[in-house]
Design a protein around this nucleic acid. Structure first.
Lengths: 224, 224
DNA sequence: CGCTTCCGGATCGTATATGGTTTCGTCGAT
DNA sequence: ATCGACGAAACCATATACGATCCGGAAGCG
């Protein structure tokens, strides 16, 4: 039983390394441009370079880091164009996923989503953007998870993961967006509950995300 | 200069292994269920197990193989449900990609697509399903490649790659589908050329793929 | 003074070796 | 005859070591 580091519930060292590095990127410990050196990380995590290497390659496939042969890896910078493309893609796949989920959405899932949205309203009143953002993520997850197409769900997950590093800032920088977001969630739940046309649901879900994206971008432009 | 095997134009051994294994899966040399043993492949390609391992992990991420820890990898089987999900996902992302491409599609790209469609018509008359399938792929590629969102294009590419192992059979088993497919391509080009509403284009492109999927599935059901 | 060349450090890429885990066959007991 | 346990083989996962490649700076030359 090689419980080398702290806890190792059956995960391989590559997977542990993946989780550690990913969390450090998403929580901002490693900011864009930070250089990930294999040997260095290996020493810190008390493993060899091989598992680290594999973890970094996986992160590369997800777009978290950029890798150059015989040079090394560094945390990927997200420029506005990147952000636009990622959000646009997410709008498309998440919209489709929620549209497909609508056909056989369980009442239970709708209730859970509604409760999450209520909690978002609360955190909005209490000016808690961190909790708000987390709840927002869980709200969306509760809906798109019901999609019967696992591939599509996977794509949505990847999209969210890709946004993870900048997601936190969205509602902080665009405060006015948060309240309208909650209201749009209400409307979306109403559409889902009333068994509306899947196409309508998809379009609304897509528009919801597109609106968030444009709010963020226009704010960015305003500052520049 | 480690030109060990045959040619090595700057690629790493992992990448070469990836290409070799992938091509063997897509051309049917390795049928579903075939067991990929690291040491065995390593010996055959005259490399060590490490690059093979990495190649297989990449193929796993793309859905070509299934991997189990401490057990090994085998070529993924594609059951009808898997096919349905993959096609559905592809319909969504490719439809969106073509819809977005429509906004600034170059006349040159349209011409090339039109020419490819004409060649499809020819190969249809000559009962050449292999050429037809290849041209079909190139036709679609010519369109979705124009999409300005590289993430989306990447997703479409992955979807096509995922279908690669069974794609060849589609038009062979559903011959009646081929001719209507060519006509739908004409219609699609007309929509793109006339600068139609992107939403209409997206819906038409999605429907085009959905129809192919349903034709295939109903044929399958009819035989069972 | 600017450009080219060369050298050293740093880092990755791969090979080999070893340990741990799973699986399958076999033997014995019931 | 069937079921369970034990043992051996196959295989993966990782560590260590070495070679290849790239980048930066310093020295030499025009």
């Amino acid at each position: 039983m090689p419980a080398t580091s702290s806890d190792n519930p059956g995960l391989s060292k590559s997977q542990r390394a993946y989780q550690v590095i990913k969390s450090r990127i998403t929580d901002g410990s490693y900011s864009p441009g930070y250089r990930l050196v294999l040997g260095q990380l290996a020493k810190e995590l008390s493993v060899s370079a091989v598992p680290i290497r594999e973890a970094i390659r996986l992160l590369e496939a997800e777009g978290f880091v950029e890798f150059e042969r015989n040079v090394g890896a560094q945390v990927a910078a997200i420029n506005p164009t990147e952000y636009l493309h990622t959000m646009q893609t997410l709008a498309i796949v998440e919209g489709a996923a929620i549209g497909l989920a609508g056909e056989d959405m369980s009442a239970d899932a709708l209730d859970r989503a509604a409760e999450l949205n209520e909690r978002m309203r609360t955190s909005l009143r209490e000016f808690d953007p961190i909790a708000f953002t987390r709840l927002n993520q869980r709200f969306h997850e509760a809906l798109y998870e019901q999609c019967p197409n696992p591939h599509l769900v996977d794509l949505v997950r990847r999209g969210w993961a890709r946004l993870a590093s900048i997601r936190e800032s969205t509602f902080i920088f665009v405060p006015g967006r948060a309240s309208s977001s909650v209201e749009e969630h209400d409307k979306l739940l109403e559409l889902l509950g009333s068994g509306a046309d899947p196409e309508v649901i998809e379009q609304y879900a897509r528009a919801h995300r597109t609106t968030t994206m444009q709010a963020f971008l226009s704010k960015e432009d305003g500052h520049v």
